[in-house]
Simulated scan of single mutants.
Amino acid sequence: MDLKLEVLVIPVSDVDRAKAFYEQLGFRLDADFPVGDDFRVVQVTPPGSEASIILGKGVSTAAPGSVQGLHLVVTDIEAARAELLARGADVSDVWHDADGVFHHPGTTNRVSGPHPERASYGSFASFEDPDGNGWILQEVVTRAPGR
């Protein structure tokens, strides 16, 4: 059985501000359904992604800004960072984790610069949306077997 991730719900405080932010980053607007004063569904998709995010009003009980560790895979971490900066995102410098396996939450164990061997899955940069929902860019040039 295939189970494909389709949508993640991201809690935001201001739907129009969040929608504008993600569109400015190049996310495709798939839908904007205002269904009254208390319910609105906005769906956007990152460039090249098969999975989308939904933000809106009345779509989540989670606190705005509470979602962390959302990963966007890129093939060139430095080029992706530069493009997001040019589009107005406040993106961290590129970093890798001292343990070289994944990364710790927050800024614990971060080492400045890309992974020393530029190993796939080893270099990161991060940014937040206007509410503080946290995104991680992860460089993957060669996927691990079976992925």
Rank of each mutant, 00 (worst) to 15 (best):
D2R: 13
L5Q: 03
V7L: 15
P11D: 10
V12H: 00
V12P: 02
S13L: 06
D14R: 06
A18W: 07
F21P: 01
Q24F: 09
Q24H: 03
R28M: 01
D32I: 02
F33C: 06
G36D: 07
G36A: 11
D37Q: 14
R40F: 03
V42K: 01
S49C: 15
S49R: 01
S49V: 08
E50L: 05
S52M: 05
L55S: 07
L55Y: 10
K57H: 09
G58E: 03
A63G: 08
S66L: 09
S66G: 12
G69F: 11
L70V: 15
V74A: 02
R81W: 05
L84H: 02
L85Q: 13
G88M: 09
A89V: 04
S92P: 02
D93I: 05
V94I: 12
W95E: 05
D97H: 02
A98I: 10
D99A: 09
F102Y: 12
H103Y: 09
T107W: 09
T108S: 12
R110Y: 03
V111A: 02
S112Y: 04
P114R: 08
P114M: 07
H115K: 06
E117Q: 13
A119E: 14
Y121K: 05
G122I: 03
F124P: 07
S126E: 15
F127N: 14
E128L: 04
P130V: 09
N133S: 04
G134V: 03
I136M: 13
Q138N: 06
V140G: 08
V141R: 15
V141L: 05
T142R: 13
R143C: 02
R143M: 14
A144Q: 14
A144P: 00
G146E: 08
